[in-house]
């Protein structure tokens, strides 16, 4: 028999982790919508967020909020550098999508190697944002960091929504995703938008990395699983809205938590990857979009 309290605990952990996946998933969508490129190196921003923040905390002795505030722009800049140095030249030369995918993957490995040389191969972590906890609710432990993840996650989604609907830049980004040529004709600086999308996406990854590091650990090579899970979240959400990606992430996190409860921790990645394959093969438009079309066709 599965212990109910244990199951509830797993689910709570799953929701927290799923929200992180959702944030990474949004990062995928932002770049994809602006440029039609899927950045296979997305997970590296999560790693950089955690590693750089941990370094600022340990060596510069900054308080956590300041370390986070410094880390996010640094990682965003690395994202911009990736766009300027690698993606844009290939884009200009009309490289095939597979070549660009490979380049982003190689870029991830390059950043990992540089991190390995600069910061070493030791896993790092830092304390929760607020000391103490966890909050006990009927035998289920809710760590304070869980609330930070929920709060910051909600804040990010709300902020992104406001950015995409209320600001000029956000609307311009959406225009690029609808029709880049028309947007360019209307005076939207498409190239600058592509740069902006990489900055935004890298920043989101960094936030995800900073939020998750206290409850897990970070090391130079944690990028790939986070990147892949973020991609799965984006796929479930249909590669469209931020809310879709977050919903997809939470679904994935919960599913992974159930898989851990039933199969044991070692097969959680296999379970997530199987979800990816099933979703890709059965719902190529994403589960949420599929449900929407089903509903509208019934009307």
């Amino acid at each position: 028999m599965i212990d109910v309290v244990q199951l509830a605990q797993n689910l709570i952990n799953g929701v927290g982790l799923g929200l992180i996946y959702g944030l990474i998933g949004i990062g995928f969508c932002v770049i994809y919508n602006a440029s039609g490129i899927v950045n296979f190196g997305q997970g590296v921003f999560v790693m950089l967020g955690g590693m750089i923040c941990a370094t600022f905390l340990a060596h510069a002795g900054l308080p956590i909020w300041l370390a986070a505030l410094v880390t996010v722009p640094v990682v965003a800049l690395i994202g911009v550098a990736m766009e300027v140095a690698i993606v844009r030249p290939m884009w200009k030369r009309g490289a095939s999508i597979f070549a660009i995918i490979l380049a982003t993957l190689a870029c991830q490995m390059l950043i990992e190697q540089v991190t390995l040389l600069g910061l070493g191969d030791q896993p790092r972590t830092f304390d929760s944002f607020t000391p103490g906890g966890p909050l006990m609710v009927g035998g289920v432990a809710l760590p304070y960091q869980f609330f930070w993840v929920l709060g910051c996650g909600a804040l990010m989604v709300a902020g992104l929504w406001a950015f995409f609907t209320r600001t000029r830049s956000g609307r311009a980004l959406r225009a690029c995703s609808q029709n880049a040529e028309a947007a360019a004709l209307l005076g939207v600086p498409v190239r600058r938008m592509m740069m902006l999308s990489f900055a935004l996406s890298a920043g989101l990854g960094a936030v995800a990395g900073i939020l998750i590091t206290p409850s897990q650990i970070t090391a130079y090579n944690i990028g790939t699983p986070f990147g892949v899970n973020g991609f799965i979240a984006a796929i479930i959400g249909g590669f469209g809205s931020a809310a879709g990606a977050v919903t997809g992430g939470i679904l994935l996190g919960v599913f992974q938590a159930l898989a851990i409860a039933l199969l044991g921790a070692s097969f959680k990645n296999v379970a997530a990857l199987s979800v990816l394959l099933v979703v890709l093969l059965v719902f190529p438009q994403g589960i949420l979009a599929q449900i929407k079309t089903l509903r509208s066709s019934r009307r």
Partner: peptide
């Protein structure tokens, strides 16, 4: 899997490799 195209094909095959590795 081969019904997929572009990024989906790339990610689905990437997942096959990762599943085998895991």
């Amino acid at each position: 899997t081969l019904r997929l195209r572009g990024h989906y094909l790339a990610m689905a095959t990437f997942a096959l490799g990762l599943i085998t590795y895991e």
